[in-house]
Design a protein around this nucleic acid. Structure first.
Lengths: 139, 139
DNA sequence: GGCTCTGTTCTATATGAGGTGCATCATAGG
DNA sequence: CCTATGATGCACCTCATATAGAACAGAGCC
């Protein structure tokens, strides 16, 4: 679990931590059951306060992606293999995605290009090992 | 140009104004050359300060979507018909989109579902009139 | 030239978010 | 008991958000 953050960027540190972990879950680098670093430890590693790390972890807990216990620390509770999303989550996501896609359209990207972009990004996440036999794998 | 905002929501008002206008550009409700309401006027209409409106407009100006003049006010400068996006824009957009897609994967949405969702949203934007002769238009 | 409408700029203020630091408590395990 | 861990609370600072008032500048119109 290697995390790199941008301390002086426009996006808050705790948000960056949340985003990087979400991406780690998507790529499979952080599967269900895997433990994340302790808040104090990660704080030291990143050179930030452990409260900030805690805030990022707490976001993920609210989203249902993390389970946080006293001694076990933060453990991934949900990933691509965990079934359908929690009810109510999709509304907010769709609204945000709508703005993202509108921005691309307004900037002149063609519909087909946008879709291809999304497919490429997703292909970078899942090496086609989650939904059936992949290239070069036994069936 | 009807704008509705959520004053008590988690997303800043000026950001909402920016987002709604971006979507209006994408849908074609605000084509190139069309004028937006004056900042003071829109401020009154929405019940907010005109400085907040100004901040939203300024964001769009920085993104190259708006041209703002003394007397003409805010005029849409760019939309889906304006050619390829400005260089350098795509990097940030791809990074943000990466996080959005990772979230969907982590929440359990299948790759195919995500793509279909994006296609549906885009279909709601562009009624297939932008890429080639449209229904009822001369070729 | 005046008048008005527009954006621009400046100052000021109030509220909340982001981030850090320190201290303390609670719990689970050796 | 001792230690590592998360949970909680408090104080503090910086900066973003939002509002408000005032004054300035350009462009169009009478």
């Amino acid at each position: 679990m290697l995390l790199s953050i941008e301390p002086d960027g426009p996006v808050p540190i705790y948000q960056q931590i949340r985003d990087r972990i979400v991406e780690a879950i998507a790529t499979g680098d952080a599967p269900v059951g895997s433990g994340l670093p302790a808040t104090r430890q990660l704080g030291v590693d990143l050179g930030i306060n452990f409260h900030t790390v805690n805030k990022g972890y707490d976001l993920l807990r609210q989203e249902g992606l993390l389970r946080i216990g006293r001694k076990a620390g933060a453990v991934v509770q949900r990933d691509a293999t965990s079934g359908p999303p929690r009810p109510g989550w999709e509304e907010g996501w769709t609204a945000r995605m709508r703005t993202m896609l509108a921005e691309a359209i307004a900037q002149g990207l063609a519909s087909e290009e946008i879709i291809v972009h999304c497919q490429d990004i997703i292909a970078g996440f899942v090496p086609a090992t989650h939904y059936g036999p992949a290239v070069g794998e036994a069936s």
